[in-house]
Amino acid sequence: MDTGQVGVWHPAIGKAPAAVARRAAVEIEELGYGSVWVNEGPGSKDPLVVASLLLSATSRIAVGTGIANLWGRDATAMAASRATVGEAFPGRFLLGIGVSHSTLVGSRGHAYGKPLTAMREYLDGMDQAQPGLPEGDAPRLLAALRPKMLELSRDRAAGAHTYFVPPEHTALARDVLGHDRLLVPEQAVLLETDPARARQIARTHMAYYLTLPNYVNNLLALGYTDSDLADGGSDRLADAIVAWGDPETVVKRVRAHLDAGADHVALQPLSPHAPDLTDALTQLQTLAPALDL
């Protein structure tokens, strides 16, 4: 799979009207980015269906689910979707699977329980369903932050898709995964050179994620403190999570992830108030030359 080193992750792609999402994917492809990632969250459409729509509208770019929630479909259905899309678009589809978060799982009527056990059993179910399905070329990645889930990504998947992480986490993840597994971190970016404004936008972005234990516990394990996480996040945390500044500054952060062991970095352009696909595309246009796409 030739995705290059830089792709795009943006929540509006999975919520936009189909025609808008397809046009965005085409533009991202024409700019030279190697991937588009579709998430599954509140208000999102089915990421596997959206991925198929984007793949059918483009000719080269890879499309990944970042992530498809395992609580949203049983293991047999996930295996069938992976095989179907992988067969239709060989070498262009990545299936990212995750356990999501307790609040979101509870809203679906499920008990979050033990996420590592749930993922392990789900992968067992997918593997048992695979015989008889069409052969497809679709790597399976796991949403992983902490060592045990990263180990499962190493042992039972093609690698890991990480989110809301600084480059130091990428280095730790690479150590766990070894050298023969894919590692694709998401990186929030913002073309804004005013520190106060940039950090205000960064805090707006971080606010929701700092309510989720998975992300909070990962940051604490990385050495961030309770004071870093309080009051919307410290300047130190805002600067670690969001690469803000001019294009060259953003490129340095991408390089930091790659130097730490990432195979591919998925950029999420931030906007002042809410995810804005038009604004994201404008930032991606500006970034493309600096990234040497």
Rank of each mutant, 00 (worst) to 15 (best):
R154Q: 12
D127Y: 08
A188L: 07
E135A: 11
R146P: 06
F164P: 14
T170D: 06
G113C: 11
L142M: 11
R154I: 15
P134S: 09
M126I: 07
Y112W: 14
P185F: 03
P134H: 10
D127M: 03
P139Q: 09
G132Y: 10
L150N: 10
P167A: 03
Q187G: 05
A118F: 07
E135F: 01
E168I: 14
D155P: 12
L133W: 01
L133M: 02
A160F: 02
E135V: 13
E168S: 13
K148A: 15
R156L: 08
P167D: 15
P166R: 03
H169V: 02
G178H: 13
G178I: 14
P139L: 05
D175Q: 12
L152T: 09
R156F: 10
H161Q: 12
Q130H: 10
A171N: 03
L142D: 00
Q130L: 05
L177P: 01
L145I: 00
D124Y: 06
A118C: 09
E186Y: 12
D127P: 13
A188D: 14
R174P: 04
H179G: 14
E186S: 04
A158F: 07
H169R: 10
L172N: 08
D175M: 00
S153A: 15
P139C: 15
T162P: 09
A173W: 02
Q130F: 09
E121A: 03
V176A: 02
A129E: 14
Y163V: 15
L123W: 11
Y112R: 02
